[in-house]
Computed example of a mutant assay.
Amino acid sequence: MLVKVFPIKLKDGAQAAAEAVVREFAPKGPGAEPGTVSFRVYRDPAKPDYLLFVEHFADQAAYDEHTGSAAYRELIAGRFAETMTEFVEIDHELVVAL
């Protein structure tokens, strides 16, 4: 299992636009990818213009397929990227899950 976590700082006032892109992307990208185990995006009500992505993939090949898809290129690398000011990509290893 490959776990990716992305804390993402958005441009001021970009929260609604970023969330709209994520909602459009979810069924077209991760929702249609057999190797994507889970795709979750969280907002922090106390921290505007910020999103946290937590994603689980079967393996590195599934992640590569995810980031190489047409939906990802158009919506995440394209429109969503225009709403960001910075992001960090953090790999995690699962210890326990219920």
Rank of each mutant, 00 (worst) to 15 (best):
A70C: 06
A16L: 11
G29A: 05
L75R: 06
E55C: 01
F6M: 09
F6P: 01
R79A: 12
G13W: 06
V22N: 06
K47H: 10
V95Y: 13
M1V: 07
S38Y: 11
P48N: 03
T67H: 08
G35F: 08
R40G: 07
Y42I: 00
A17D: 14
V88S: 08
Y63E: 13
F6T: 13
E65S: 11
S38V: 04
A14S: 15
E33N: 02
V21L: 08
F57E: 00
F39A: 07
K9I: 12
I8T: 12
A62V: 04
V37D: 07
P30E: 00
K11A: 04
V41H: 02
T83E: 04
D59V: 00
I90D: 04
V5I: 14
V37K: 07
D12S: 09
V95A: 15
F57K: 01
Q15H: 11
V3T: 15
H56C: 05
F39Q: 03
D64A: 15
K11T: 04
E86H: 09
A77K: 13
E33C: 05
A77P: 03
Q60F: 05
F87Y: 06
A16D: 15
Y50K: 02
Q60M: 11
A62P: 04
G78Y: 10
D49R: 03
R43G: 08
I90G: 06
V96L: 15
A62F: 14
Y42R: 01
F25N: 09
A26I: 11
R79L: 04
K28P: 13
T36E: 08
L2N: 09
R43P: 03
Y42H: 12
A46M: 08
G31E: 04
A20Y: 03
V3H: 14
G35R: 00
A20F: 12
H92G: 14
A97S: 07
T67M: 10
Y50H: 12
A16P: 09
